[in-house]
Amino acid sequence: MNDSIIKVNLSKVFIGIDLAKETHVAKAININGELISTLSKLDNSIEGFQMFDDWVQNIIRTIF
């Protein structure tokens, strides 16, 4: 039981987004606060959202 709890806790990823008027920045960290990935210069557009979605999906494939 404890092994499964530890495994779930270690697989958590937190994504923070710094929203600005035009260009945004996103970072992903693990539960230990270690930087996993950064997405900089994310535009405020549908293309920017698609880039963000692709970035998140890549993190999911890599981590899990």
Rank of each mutant, 00 (worst) to 15 (best):
Asn2Met: 10
Glu22Gln: 13
Glu22Thr: 11
Asp53Gln: 10
Leu35Glu: 15
Gly33Trp: 02
Lys7Ile: 08
Glu34His: 00
Trp55Ile: 00
Ile63Pro: 02
Phe49Val: 00
Ser45Met: 06
Ser37Lys: 07
Ile60Arg: 05
Ile31Pro: 02
Leu10Lys: 15
Arg61Gly: 08
Ile59Phe: 00
Asn32Lys: 12
Ala26Asn: 01
Glu22Val: 08
Ile36Ser: 04
Ser4Tyr: 12
Phe64Ile: 07
Ser45Lys: 08
Phe64Thr: 08
Asp18Ala: 15
Ala28Asn: 02
Leu35Ser: 04
Ile29Cys: 11
Asn44Trp: 11
Asn32Pro: 00
Phe49Leu: 09
Asp53Pro: 02
Asn30Arg: 00
Gln57Phe: 08
Gln57Tyr: 09
Ile63Ser: 05
Asn32Cys: 01
Ile31Ser: 12
Asn9Asp: 04
Ala26Gly: 04
Lys27Ile: 14
Ser4Gln: 13
Val56Thr: 04
Asp3Thr: 07
Gly16Asp: 12
Ser40Gly: 08
Leu19Asp: 08
Glu34Trp: 06
Asp54Asn: 13
Ile46Asn: 14
Leu35Thr: 07
Met1Phe: 11
Ile29Met: 10
Ser40Trp: 05
Asp3Pro: 01
Ile17Cys: 07
Asn30Leu: 01
Ala20Asp: 07
Ser40Gln: 14
Ile36Val: 09
Gly16Met: 11
Lys27Glu: 12
Asn32Ile: 00
Asp53Ala: 10
Asn58Cys: 03
Ile31Met: 07
Thr38Gln: 14
Val8His: 13
Lys27Gly: 02
Ile63Cys: 04
Asp18Cys: 06
Phe52Ser: 05
Ile63Phe: 08
Thr62Glu: 13
Ile6His: 04
Asn2Gly: 08
Val56Met: 02
Ile15Gln: 09
Met51Gly: 02
Asp43Lys: 14
Asn32Asp: 07
Leu39Met: 03
Arg61Val: 06
Val8Asn: 13
Ile36Trp: 03
Lys12Trp: 09
Ser37Pro: 01
Phe52Met: 03
Ala26Leu: 04
Leu42Val: 11
Thr38Val: 15
Gly48Pro: 04
Asn44Pro: 07
Gly48Thr: 08
Arg61Asn: 15
Leu19Glu: 13
Ile29Ser: 05
Val25Asn: 14
Ile36Asp: 03
Gln57Asp: 10
Met51Ser: 13
Val13His: 05
Ala28Val: 03
Asn2Cys: 04
Gly33Met: 05
Ser45Leu: 07
Ile15Thr: 09
Asp54Gly: 00
Ile46Asp: 14
Asn44Gln: 14
Gly16Trp: 11
Phe14Ile: 13
Lys27Met: 11
Ser40Val: 12
Lys12Ile: 12
Ile46His: 09
Gly33Tyr: 00
Trp55Gly: 06
Val13Gln: 02
Glu22Leu: 11
Asn44Lys: 11
Gly16Pro: 11
Ile6Asn: 01
Asp3Met: 08
Lys41Val: 05
Gly16Ala: 15
Ile15Tyr: 08
Val56Ile: 15
Asp18Gly: 12
Leu39Gly: 00
Leu42Gly: 00
Thr62Gln: 13
Trp55Gln: 05
Ile36Glu: 05
Ile60Tyr: 09
Glu22Gly: 09
His24Glu: 09
Met51Gln: 14
Gly33Glu: 01
Ala20Cys: 11
Ile31Thr: 09
Lys27Pro: 05
Ile17Gln: 04
Glu34Gln: 07
Ser11Met: 06
Gly33Asn: 06
Lys21Gly: 09
Asn32Ser: 10
Ile15Asp: 08
